[in-house]
C-alpha cells in the first residue's frame, strides 16, 4: 500500500519581524528554520499523533502540509502526486480537512451553526439543494440536535463546539483530517466523547488522521503511530505502543516520565527534566536537546546526531538511544532519578 501523504525533508523558514522581537533578541540573523528537515508518511486510514512542547512547530507543520504556510524546502506528496502549485494545494485541501486549535474562535461568531456547517461546500461550489437539511444531517452525524442549526457559536459548550468542528471538518468527506489539539481545554469527561466520535467516524468513513497534541495520556489511546517533535525537528517516530513501552530518545522518555499519574501512591520524586525549552531562534549546538538531556555527553554538545532507523518502523535522532537492556537506558533512569513510589 502506498502512503496517503508523504512529506520529505520539509523545512519552513520564518523571518523574524517586529520591533519588539528584535529588541528582545537583537541578533541580526534574518531567518530561522521553524520546521527543519521533517520526513513523515501517513498510510490511508492511519492515525498519527504529532507530539511536542508548545512552540515546537506542530501547528506550523500541519498548516504547511495544507499549503497555508509556504515551505522553504522539501516535497509533499498526496495520494501519489506531488503538491507544488497553489492549484495543487487547493485540490489537496478539497480532499482534506483541518480542525483548528481554538474551535470557538475559528467559528465566525456572527454566523449560525447551520451556515457554518455548509459554508465549506458552498465555497467549493458543490451543489446543495437544501442547506438546512444538509446541516441537520451533519449535526446528526456528530450527535447534536437538529435545533442547533439556528444557534450561534457562543451558545455552545466547549465540547459541543468541538463536535461542530468535527462536523465541519468532515462535511467534505475528506481523505485526511488534521486535528490541532482537538481536546485542549476540555474536561476528561468530555474529551473522551470528542475522541470517540472521531474514532467512530474514522471507522465509518475511512479517512486518515493526524492529531497534533501535547497530551500524552490521550494520544496513547487514539493513535497508531507517534512522531515526537523538538524545536521543529522530529526526534523519534514509531508505533505508539512501542514508543510508550520503550522510548528510545531521551526527550521522549522525559516527556513520558513528566506526565503526572493520577495515583497518590505513585508520586514522582523529581522532575524528569529541568530547564526551559530553548528558542528556535537560538538553537543549541550539536544535539539540540543537550541543554536538558539527563545523559548528555561531550560529543552531544558539538556533533548533531543523525536521524536514523532503529529497527523496523522506528527512527531516532540521538547518539546514545535508550535501547532495551542497554547501558544508556540504565544511565537514563539513574540520571533522571525519577523513581516513583509503588
Amino acid at each position: 500500500m502506498s502512503p496517503l501523504l508523504a512529506i520529505d525533508d520539509l523545512s519552513v523558514t520564518f523571518a523574524r519581524s517586529g520591533l519588539l522581537s528584535r529588541l528582545i533578541n537583537p541578533f541580526p540573523l534574518p531567518s530561522f528554520n521553524v520546521i527543519d528537515g521533517v520526513t513523515l508518511s501517513l498510510m490511508p486510514g492511519e492515525t498519527l499523533g504529532l507530539v511536542g512542547e508548545s512552540g515546537s512547530g506542530k501547528t506550523t507543520l500541519a498548516r504547511t502540509i495544507l499549503g497555508l504556510v509556504r515551505a522553504a524546502a522539501g516535497r509533499i506528496v498526496f495520494e501519489g502526486r506531488e503538491v507544488q502549485t497553489p492549484a495543487d494545494f487547493r485540490a489537496m485541501r478539497r480532499r482534506s480537512a483541518m480542525m483548528f486549535q481554538d474551535p470557538v474562535a475559528s467559528l465566525s461568531p456572527r454566523l449560525r451553526i447551520g451556515t457554518l456547517l455548509t459554508e465549506p461546500q458552498i465555497i467549493q461550489g458543490l451543489p446543495m439543494p437544501d442547506r438546512r437539511a444538509a446541516a441537520k444531517a451533519l449535526l446528526a452525524l456528530v450527535g447534536l440536535p437538529a435545533s442547533f442549526v439556528d444557534r450561534f457559536p457562543h451558545e455552545l459548550s466547549g465540547g459541543q463546539a468541538r463536535r461542530v468542528g468535527v462536523a465541519r471538518a468532515l462535511a467534505m468527506k475528506p481523505h485526511l483530517l488534521l486535528a490541532d489539539e482537538p481536546t485542549a481545554g476540555l474536561d476528561v469527561s468530555v474529551q473522551g466523547d470528542v475522541l470517540n466520535l472521531i474514532g467512530e467516524l474514522k471507522r465509518e468513513l475511512g479517512f486518515a488522521a493526524m492529531i497534533v497534541t501535547h497530551n500524552l495520556a490521550m494520544i496513547r489511546h487514539v493513535s497508531d503511530r507517534l512522531a515526537i517533535m523538538y524545536l521543529g525537528r522530529l526526534v523519534e517516530t514509531g508505533p505508539t505502543q512501542d514508543v510508550f513501552s520503550a522510548p528510545m530518545h531521551p526527550y521522549t522518555a522525559t516527556l513520558i516520565q513528566s506526565e503526572p499519574i493520577p495515583d497518590p501512591r505513585r508520586r514522582s520524586q523529581n522532575p524528569a527534566v529541568t530547564g526551559e525549552i530553548p528558542s528556535v531562534f537560538r538553537r543549541p549546538s550539536g544535539c539540540e536537546f543537550h541543554t536538558r538531556c539527563p545523559i548528555a555527553r561531550d560529543r552531544c554538545k558539538t556533533e548533531a546526531p543523525a536521524y536514523r532507523p532503529m529497527g523496523a518502523d522506528r527512527m531516532v535522532r540521538c547518539h546514545f538511544p535508550l535501547e532495551t537492556g542497554g547501558q544508556e537506558r540504565e544511565a537514563f533512569s539513574r540520571a533522571s532519578a525519577n523513581q516513583r513510589g509503588n
Partner: peptide, 23 residues
C-alpha cells in the same frame, strides 16, 4: 466516574475512552 474517565489511568490502548454522558 471522574476517576474512571482519566485516560492516564490506562496503559493498554482503549478502543473507546470512558466518558460521563450528559452535562
Amino acid at each position: 466516574a471522574l476517576l474512571a474517565c482519566d485516560p492516564a489511568r490506562f496503559h493498554e490502548r482503549l478502543d473507546r475512552l470512558p466518558t460521563i454522558p450528559g452535562s
